[in-house]
Amino acid sequence: MTASSTALPPSSRILGTGSYLPARRVTNQDLADQLARDGIETSDDWIVERTGIRARHFAADGETTSDLALPAARAALDAAGLTADEIDLIIVATSTPDMVFPSTACLLQQKLGIAGCAAFDVQAVCSGFVYALSVADAMIRTGAACKALVVGAETFSRILDFKDRTTCVLFGDGAGAVVLGASDAPGLHATELHADGRHADILCTPGTVAGGQVSGVPLLRMDGQAVFKLAVGVLEKVARSVLDKAGVPETDIDWLIPHQANIRIMQGTAKKLRLSLDKLIVTVDEHGNTSAASIPLALDVAVRDGRIQRGHKLMLEGVGGGFTWGAALLTY
């Protein structure tokens, strides 16, 4: 099923949101106790002061990325008032797929009990959801799709080095989803995507599979200071560029929903955009950094608790390994 080619829609709009967290909640103290058994010292105060994170959720043994994506997708479909067979495009943003191939999107499609529509993954790490949303929007505007399921889902706990206190405390698992549909009403106003592979080494998981064996290091590596310096600068710049494209002043932003990496980066970006911290959606304290899942997770939380209302203008933005970054301005 594809959209009609005779009347292309002027916009795409979010029709529904959903999210899911695995059952296992891991506090900072839980991690501190685990690290202490290996002679590594950390504390709840140390983690909160540097990151704003108090807890995160980890997937159970055998629980895959597509397993997390499924309930998030179903919740978004329910919120949109649609059934899975009305979807004609599935895009999953993830850096932790179930397997080398097929894509997590194809596995999610099978679990939803549908077949035939296009399904593929987008890999831009923590910027992945903004990348996926931009691709879905473009496909809807050009008539290649009518209703898209866009999911960010991650099981980052599988690639963490639990002997590195500077990284293992940062990340969590989860999934968030939106249903995007063609609309005559204002929806996505503008998006912008960027990458700079010269900085690939500051945030990476440098492992692969070769000859049936793991080659390289299949665990996350990060230069935190380098990431911080790059992140604050590029996030402000891309947000302003998207506002300029849309012809919208920063004062019209009702909510800033950044990728939930670190409270300092998030607050720094809000201040550079001259936004009150009251307009910042924060879930990093309870979810940690769920990479591509963090923006749609935070979006769904704020929609369901009533903060985000129809007609509100939202700025979504993310930065991740690659080095990648991007932003999207939309009316919810």
Rank of each mutant, 00 (worst) to 15 (best):
T208P: 06
I295N: 00
T155D: 08
R37M: 14
M1E: 14
A3C: 08
G326V: 01
S215P: 03
I159Y: 12
G187Q: 10
F101R: 07
A105F: 03
V26C: 11
I40N: 13
S4V: 05
I257S: 07
G311T: 12
V232L: 04
K163R: 12
S5A: 12
G128Q: 08
D285W: 02
L68C: 08
L77T: 15
S103T: 15
I159C: 15
I295T: 05
T166S: 14
E41V: 15
T324E: 02
E41H: 07
F120M: 06
I40F: 10
G326D: 09
L299T: 09
H189G: 06
H287C: 14
K279E: 11
F58V: 08
L21P: 05
I202V: 14
P296A: 12
V100W: 06
P10W: 01
V125C: 08
V217T: 13
A69I: 13
H199I: 02
W255E: 08
A144W: 13
H199Y: 15
G18S: 10
R24G: 07
A3K: 04
T64N: 14
A32L: 06
R264N: 03
L299D: 09
H287S: 13
W325N: 05
D196K: 11
I114D: 10
S4P: 07
S11D: 09
E236Y: 00
V232H: 01
C204P: 03
V151E: 07
F120I: 07
A79V: 08
C126Y: 04
A302T: 14
D33S: 12
G322Y: 06
A239I: 06
V178H: 03
K313T: 15
S5I: 03
T65S: 12
K313N: 08
E236N: 01
A79M: 11
I257T: 09
L77Y: 06
G81L: 13
Q34K: 10
L188W: 03
Q110F: 06
P22K: 02
A292K: 00
I114Y: 07
L243Q: 09
A298K: 00
L180M: 12
G52H: 04
S103M: 09
A32Q: 05
G62S: 03
S103F: 02
G306Y: 07
L188I: 15
A177W: 00
V125D: 00
P97L: 05
G174N: 07
K147M: 02
N28A: 10
L235D: 06
F228G: 01
A153N: 08
A115W: 13
A175Q: 12
S5G: 12
G187N: 10
T42W: 13
S95M: 15
P102L: 01
G212P: 08
G18R: 11
I159W: 09
V178G: 00
D30L: 04
S66W: 10
S183M: 03
